[in-house]
Write a protein that binds this DNA or RNA. Sequence first.
DNA 1: CGCACTCTTGACCGCACTCAACGTTGGTGG
DNA 2: CCACCAACGTTGAGTGCGGTCAAGAGTGCG
Lengths: 242, 242
Amino acid sequence: MSVRIAERARASPSACTHPRCVTCDVRRVAVCVAVGPEHLARLAAIASEQALAAGQSLFEEGEPAEAVYVVTAGMLKLYKLLSDGRRQILGFVVPGDFLGCAFGRLHVCSAEAVTAVELCRLRRMQFLSLLDDCPTLEKEIMQRTCTELAAAQEQMLVLGRKTATERVASFILRMADRRRPANDAPLHLPMSRMDIADYLGLTMETVSRTFSSLRRTGAIDLLDTHLLAVPHRRRLEELAGI
Amino acid sequence: MSVRIAERARASPSACTHPRCVTCDVRRVAVCVAVGPEHLARLAAIASEQALAAGQSLFEEGEPAEAVYVVTAGMLKLYKLLSDGRRQILGFVVPGDFLGCAFGRLHVCSAEAVTAVELCRLRRMQFLSLLDDCPTLEKEIMQRTCTELAAAQEQMLVLGRKTATERVASFILRMADRRRPANDAPLHLPMSRMDIADYLGLTMETVSRTFSSLRRTGAIDLLDTHLLAVPHRRRLEELAGI
DNA sequence: CGCACTCTTGACCGCACTCAACGTTGGTGG
DNA sequence: CCACCAACGTTGAGTGCGGTCAAGAGTGCG
């Protein structure tokens, strides 16, 4: 991986439009890391590859955080548990996303692979010291953290005030919008109905019923259990309570 | 205000334990801003005082963000609205907290005074350029943003998976814990039952009923509508579903 | 004193949960 | 190749928690 970062940086710097960007292309997934060329070797030195099978855990809440990650393929879910097993999924992580880069010593949530996953692992202390020396990277992390905070606040509105139909419609729209690159192809939702339920604060049964109801009313086309099309986006937005 | 910041910095640098901290003491509320002495004059130059009466709005979702604020007295609430008026309160802001310092151009939520409020207003563009030159301040903002993100994720668990009793118990514990300085005096909750309801994803009636039920079972002492004591913290923690 | 506002409490209702049965799919082994 | 099984998803029936509606208590202010 270390080698590949440097190689790709020289080979195709134009794959990403971000200024001073290193393109780390693993399996044709572009990962943008805003780091100046003077810090490139250091970034490469602290990076290593890691892979997970679907269902495998990456880290758990309360564990010491020893690394941060950039996802290069697949999807993970972040979640918190109550002592009796109730679960809240905080978000789904897709290629290009940073993971576990909180500033605390301990992980504040657990991470588990939804599909097979490939990641770029960065040793935490070295990554933090790189941040100190590389302002553009620090800006990038700050930007991403703010985006995550805004997403969490939007989800608080969903969980606190929206009905089941509005939650599912909001979920579909959000998942459609965060695809990189953006496109109009059918939307693949690899997570189980149970995962969607735990993300939306509902039960599996209610999620299933709501998908069926959206299909019956024509708001979505369910091509397959995990594949759907949005024929009339505006209609789904109305159902989402925008 | 500008003058007071500089004055206080020289007058009582020991009021705050934070390294290289400027104590901006307005009405005896200590506000810590991690900025080196070399940037002190610049900080003072972009700061001004502002006051709000209870119920007054500071900014609204979607407006351009022209300033960031440090609260020096009172309490504000941050919230989002749905088109039909449903409201989700994202958090309550207390003295010492930063406010509106997202990196986007527009405010992502609205802010309204719960009580009479005094703030230190910092012009946004100048504040951002100060951030560029002052790494300790930037670290401080990053740290606070991460803390806020963790709080938002904890609240997602509350809103998505906890019962009414667990939500109210969690709320009381959180409010008790974030007091600065920490103390065991009776807890003052200046916000209305409606505000608590909109923070916890409940109705006013359910919040009121739950407070009454907690009082009957002895988990809390309601000294007054907005003042309570927690006689057995452990008991409340159990009720909160820790 | 009267008004306005907030909070509390009661009665009833409905949305989402629980429990249960069944269908579908994919993997395994005879 | 099919039988079997386990996991996941769908659908139906009934229930309960928290919402809705309404009345009344408490409080502050002019």
